[in-house]
């Protein structure tokens, strides 16, 4: 007789845990849902807190916006799997609590120290599957962090400006989305090919990565 109420209670708790109590994001996201934004922000700042030799935090570097765009760009099945990945990380603490008090809360509700402890447990797990899951998550966030020009400039890894010669192929193919009728180069535009001159390490940066620019 008690089974049905218990099941209903469990279902209600599961729904509450998965969906309720998440704050409204301060920015608009096209793909990420509210609960996903909360997890992505929490994980991004656990991996990349503000300060240290590379000042921007994960949130400062726009990791949530990157993840939002990345999800939109991948095929539907992979998008679904990534969403499952976020859900898994967010709620795995229900089954295996984080150290300290309140360790069964959602990942996004844990303290920064608890979040790091949870990530560390995934990374050092004896289970290959758990490590792969962690590596996948971390790869997505790291790509997002490194997409920020300020991060690359801080690490002196921002790309240089490069003059791109006009070559025969530019007379044959238009940029993606355009028609061949819109090719704007002709034989008169062909320039000398790359001369093999090494890049100048003190030279200007790629405009999208220079100070004040953002890709």
């Amino acid at each position: 007789m008690l089974v049905v109420p218990l099941l209903l209670a469990a279902l209600a708790y599961a729904l509450w845990r998965v969906l309720a109590g998440y704050p409204t994001p301060s920015e608009r996201y096209g793909t990420l849902a509210r609960h996903e934004v909360a997890f992505v922000l929490a994980a991004a700042d656990a991996l990349f807190p503000r300060g240290g030799p590379v000042p921007p935090s994960g949130a400062d570097a726009g990791v949530p916006a990157y993840v939002d765009r990345y999800l939109a760009a991948v095929p539907p099945l992979l998008r679904f799997l990534m969403r499952c990945l976020f859900l898994l990380f967010e709620h795995a603490t229900f089954f295996v609590a984080a150290p300290g008090s309140g360790g069964r809360r959602r990942f996004s509700s844990l303290s920064p120290e608890q979040r790091v402890a949870v990530l560390d447990r995934w990374r050092r797990s004896s289970s290959f599957a758990m490590r792969i899951v962690f590596t996948s998550l971390r790869a997505i966030f790291t790509m997002g962090y490194f997409a920020d020009p300020a991060v690359l400039r801080a690490l002196r890894l921002a790309p240089y400006a490069i003059e791109t010669p006009i070559v025969e192929a530019d007379l044959l193919y238009p940029p993606i989305g355009r028609s061949v009728d819109e090719i704007r180069f002709g034989p008169q535009d062909l320039g000398p090919p790359s001369d093999g001159r090494p890049l100048d390490l003190d030279g200007p940066l790629h405009p999208a990565y220079a100070e004040g620019g953002r890709s």
Binding site: Y70, A73, M143, F146, A169, P175, I176, Y209
Partner: peptide, 17 residues
């Protein structure tokens, strides 16, 4: 599609997608 330099993405993740 054919890629022109205008279509290249220097960011590794976006380039792969």
């Amino acid at each position: 599609p054919p890629f022109t330099p205008q279509d290249f993405e220097w960011d590794g993740g976006r380039s792969m997608t």
